[in-house]
């Protein structure tokens, strides 16, 4: 098994974070992984592109030239569409990318990531915190669904991923992010979001 993914968007969307989580998910599943970020000098808003390779075999080149999957978090990310492998998958954040143009030989999956994430909240009723920021976690769930992972059996792995990256005060947001992954996964599988009690 080897999958090559390009994830793209703009600074502030959590694209690199999403790519880190995806790579670490595969690492926790015992696979070899390579993650390569590229970004401009801007603090926010610049173009972000990231390669993630996961493989059962050691990885020779970590450079993704013909991805199996393109995750397009914004409109400029569609510039990478010509690179997609024939028969590849295009995952679009339809909260930002409307009417995604595509290719005849590519399967498109649209996920309104910000909308799904916003519906999880407000996370803290007192503070009214907007949860649309968890759009990248929604997309992680969508990627796992597209890659054929069985989330029901990998819930512990997803939690392990977030425990690795969301430490100290960020750890309070692990349950929210796991829920966002679940809802993104369910959206791709054609299931409605779960109804849950909101933790306070």
């Amino acid at each position: 098994m080897k999958t090559e993914v390009i994830l793209a968007g703009h600074g502030g969307q959590g694209v690199l974070e999403l790519a880190n989580w995806l790579a670490y998910f595969h690492l926790a599943r015992g696979r070899h992984v390579a993650y390569t970020p590229s970004y401009g000098p801007e603090t926010r808003g610049g173009k972000v592109k990231c390669y993630v390779v996961a493989s059962d075999e050691p990885i020779d080149s970590p450079i993704v030239e013909e991805p199996d999957l393109l995750v397009a978090m914004n409109i400029p990310s569609m510039d990478y569409l010509p690179l997609l492998k024939r028969g590849g998958r295009l995952l679009v954040n339809s909260s930002l990318v409307k009417d995604a143009r595509s290719r005849a030989d590519v399967t498109v999956t649209e996920v309104p990531a910000a909308g799904i994430a916003a519906a999880l909240g407000p996370y803290s009723p007192q503070k009214g915190r907007d949860t649309s920021i968890a759009a990248n976690s929604v997309m992680l769930g969508a990627v796992l669904a597209i890659e054929g992972e069985e989330l029901e059996r990998q819930r512990a792995t997803v939690e392990e991923v977030f425990r690795h990256f969301l430490t100290e005060r960020k750890a309070a947001y692990i349950p929210l992010n796991v829920q966002a992954v679940e809802d993104g996964y369910r959206h791709v599988r054609g299931a409605p979001p779960l109804l849950r009690a909101i933790p306070v």
Partner: peptide, 9 residues
Amino acid sequence: AFLGQLKED
């Protein structure tokens, strides 16, 4: 810059 930024297991 590639190897500096590359993350691997």
